[in-house]
C-alpha cells in the first residue's frame, strides 16, 4: 500500500520544527510501524538526506524507548500496544499519517521525534525504590504476600516508563507513571515503611519537573501500552492525603 506521512522534523532542542511530508510507497501490511520508518529512512539516506530520528530499541514493547504520537494518539490506534508492536495492517492504502513527538514541557525535544524523558528518572530518584542495600535481605519467603496483592502490585509494576501517559494527557500530567510506581511498591509489605515519605517526595518532584495536574480525563490509561489501571492514581491520591496528614516532617 502507499501512504503519505506528515512527520515532525526538528534539528535540535532550540531550533524551530515543522511537519514535513514524505511518501511511503510499497508498504507491506506485515511491516511494523518502525520498520516502515526504517524503509523511509533508508531511502532518505540513499538520497544523501538525514534520516528521521526516533527512539527505539527492543522492538518487543518492553524497553519503553519507542514513542511517537500517531494521528494524535501516543503509540497509535491499537490499544495496549507500543509503537514498535504496531503493524501496518492497521492502516489502509492511501492513508495520511501524522507522526509527532511526545509533547510536554517536561519532555523537551532532542531531535525530530526524540524527546528527553529523564524527568521520569528524577521522579524515581526521590522515592521510587525500596531502601534495601545489597546483602541485607531476609529469606525471600520470610514474608508471605497474598497472591491477589502480588498480582495487583505486578499490574502496576508492568509500567515501561515510555511516557505515553504524559503525551496523551491534555495537561501533560505524569500522574499515571508516578502512581504506578507508588502502587507497585506501596502494595507490598516491603514497601510499606517508606510509603509516606515516598508519596510526598515523588509528588513534589513531579510538580517540580513541570508536569501538569490530573483532571481525571482518563486519556493516560487509554494510551498506556501496558494498560496500567486508573485506580493506581486513586491510590496515589489517598497515599498523598494520608501522608500529608500523618507526616511529622
Amino acid at each position: 500500500m502507499n501512504l503519505t506521512l506528515h512527520v515532525w522534523r526538528q534539528a535540535g532542542p532550540s531550533e524551530a520544527g515543522r511537519l514535513v511530508t514524505y511518501d511511503a510507497p510499497d508498504v507491506s501490511p506485515e511491516m511494523s510501524f518502525l520498520e516502515m520508518l526504517d524503509v523511509v529512512n533508508e531511502r532518505l539516506i540513499e538520497r544523501g538526506q538525514e534520516p528521521i530520528a526516533f527512539d527505539h530499541d527492543c522492538r518487543e514493547g518492553i524497553c519503553g524507548s519507542c514513542s511517537l504520537v500517531i494521528n494524535g494518539v501516543p503509540h497509535g490506534p491499537r490499544r495496549g500496544t507500543a509503537t514498535c508492536q504496531l503493524h501496518m495492517r492497521t492502516f489502509s492504502d492511501g492513508d495520511h499519517i501524522w507522526i509527532e513527538p511526545f509533547r510536554a514541557r517536561a519532555f523537551p525535544i532532542v531531535r525530530d521525534l526524540i524527546v528527553d524523558r529523564s524527568a521520569f528518572d528524577r521522579i524515581i530518584q526521590t522515592g521510587g525504590f525500596i531502601g534495601v542495600s545489597t546483602g541485607s535481605a531476609p529469606d525471600a519467603n520470610a514474608i508471605p504476600i497474598p497472591k491477589a496483592v502480588a498480582d495487583r502490585s505486578m499490574d502496576a509494576a508492568a509500567c515501561i516508563g515510555c511516557g505515553a501517559c504524559v503525551a496523551a494527557c491534555p495537561n501533560a500530567s505524569a500522574m499515571l507513571f508516578t502512581a504506578a510506581k507508588i502502587s507497585h511498591l506501596g502494595l507490598l509489605p516491603q514497601g510499606r515503611p517508606e510509603r509516606t515519605k515516598r508519596a510526598l517526595a515523588m509528588v513534589q518532584r513531579m510538580d517540580l519537573e513541570h508536569f501538569g495536574g490530573c483532571t481525571n480525563y482518563g486519556e493516560c490509561h487509554t494510551a498506556c501500552p501496558k494498560e496500567i489501571p486508573l485506580e493506581t492514581i486513586a491510590l496515589l491520591n489517598r497515599d498523598y492525603l494520608k501522608a500529608s496528614l500523618v507526616s511529622r516532617d
Binding site: V69, G72, P170, Y217, T222
Partner: peptide, 9 residues
C-alpha cells in the same frame, strides 16, 4: 499536536 484525537475524555 497538529492532529488531536481524544480517546477517553
Amino acid at each position: 499536536y497538529a492532529k488531536v484525537s481524544y480517546q477517553a475524555a
